[in-house]
Design a protein around this nucleic acid. Structure first.
Lengths: 145, 145
DNA sequence: TTGTAAATGAAAATGATTATCATCTAGCAG
DNA sequence: CTGCTAGATGATAATCATTTTCATTTACAA
């Protein structure tokens, strides 16, 4: 278990949740690569090390981690969700390749002005936003013109 | 059928699609309110006037209208999608109340600079984006503090 | 009016997600 | 170290959204 996963383990316990081996492997699986993973993909990855884990546990753990703000959802504009480890304190957004699914994080967007203006105009109490760019990454552009 | 729906009908025919009564009522249902509607909600609304319409037809029509760029998806950060009529030429985003589900459109956000910078940095060919703000609308703030 | 490609509706298939419940276990008290 | 208990797990089934299939129907151009 790497450093990040260890910190998360501490956080779990602080909030009264138990650190089970299942949660550990799921955490590792998500923390491992920089890909975004669907619940099913996490399941496949995790089954290699922990062959009798249930898909249900994946969902429960994802739910828990999302609730704790430790991972974040990617929408990809399509049907189903996938998840990425969120490096704490880095507020970021996603740039997604519609061909190969690569997700690039970026932080260079300050929406606070827009948020303030919207809040003033509409009276909304704004507490979050979702920003994703869609396109084709460099390598997909060259392989299939 | 109102003006907007009529224009859409013309557009459909221009592209070789037929204008069926089912499509007409679905268009009306979406064009009617300013709410975002899930496929199931559209189905319920449409069944009043066209009792034997199938849910499948809703899905097919939604798919078609999305493909033509006439309606747009709202993600609401959660599970399932819903749809809004897109007033042509108004590129806009959504501000969503997490309590009552009200959707407010806004246009006052220019992301072209960010898009250009991202494109330069990453080599992506960017062709779209998704921006949604989440919060609580004024009335939900007063009703449940 | 007629022919035909496109559209429809019913039913079933698929896929993702959630609920249920009996069993098991992490972590704490003793 | 050991036994206790709230919380966690896995198997199964249920639910819900969406898609596929296919025989029948229909819009609309000729």
């Amino acid at each position: 278990m790497n450093f990040t996963a260890k910190k998360i383990a501490v956080l779990l316990r602080q909030r009264g949740y138990k650190l089970t081996p299942q949660r550990r492997v799921i955490l590792d699986a998500i923390a491992d690569g920089h890909d975004h993973l669907t619940p099913a993909a996490i399941y496949e990855k995790v089954k290699r090390e922990h062959s009798n884990i249930g898909l249900v546990t994946i969902y429960r753990t994802i739910g828990l981690l999302t609730e704790l703000g430790l991972i974040c959802e990617v929408h990809s504009g399509g049907n189903c969700r996938s998840y990425l480890l969120r490096r704490p304190s880095e507020h970021h957004h996603h740039l997604i390749c519609s061909d190969c699914g690569t997700v690039v994080d970026f932080t260079s967007c300050d929406l606070s002005e827009v948020e303030q203006k919207l809040s003033d105009d509409t009276g909304f109490d704004i507490n979050g936003h979702l920003l994703e760019f869609l396109g084709r990454c460099r390598s997909c552009q060259t392989t299939t013109p």
